[in-house]
């Protein structure tokens, strides 16, 4: 199976967030460097729902607990979009390779 590139996943994630952000009164541009909590004003429950959308979009589970545990170890408990994309790519392609 062909590996999904970071560019494709980034486009997917940005499309999803830009669609949602129409209601958020967020005037800035959403980029790979945007922080989910600090910039977009996420509440933690928003992370739960975003994870649902990502899983629904790709039709498969991702180990979000692992990602969140990693975030919990950091001084800054936040996540850049680029990190989310990398996380998705690693597990999407890891799963594809093993399939």
């Amino acid at each position: 199976m062909t590996a999904v590139t970071q560019e494709v996943i980034l486009n997917d994630v940005l499309k999803l967030l830009n669609e949602l952000a129409r209601d958020w009164e967020y005037s800035g541009e959403i980029t790979p460097d945007t922080w989910l909590f600090a910039d977009l004003g996420f509440e933690s429950i928003d992370a739960v729902v975003l994870a649902s959308f990502v899983q629904e979009h790709y039709g498969r589970p991702f180990p979000f607990p692992q990602l969140l545990a990693d975030i919990g170890q950091r001084p800054v408990r936040d996540l850049r979009i680029s990190e989310l994309v990398l996380f998705i790519q690693q597990h999407l392609n890891g799963s594809a390779a093993g399939a």
């Binding site: 429950i45 992370a47 739960v48 589970p61 180990p63 607990p65 969140l68 545990a69």
Partner: peptide, 15 residues
């Protein structure tokens, strides 16, 4: 079936 596993903490309590 999807083995969804969202181990999230603070939002749960906050909610």
């Amino acid at each position: 079936a999807r083995d969804v596993d969202l181990q999230l903490e603070a939002q749960v309590i906050g909610q």
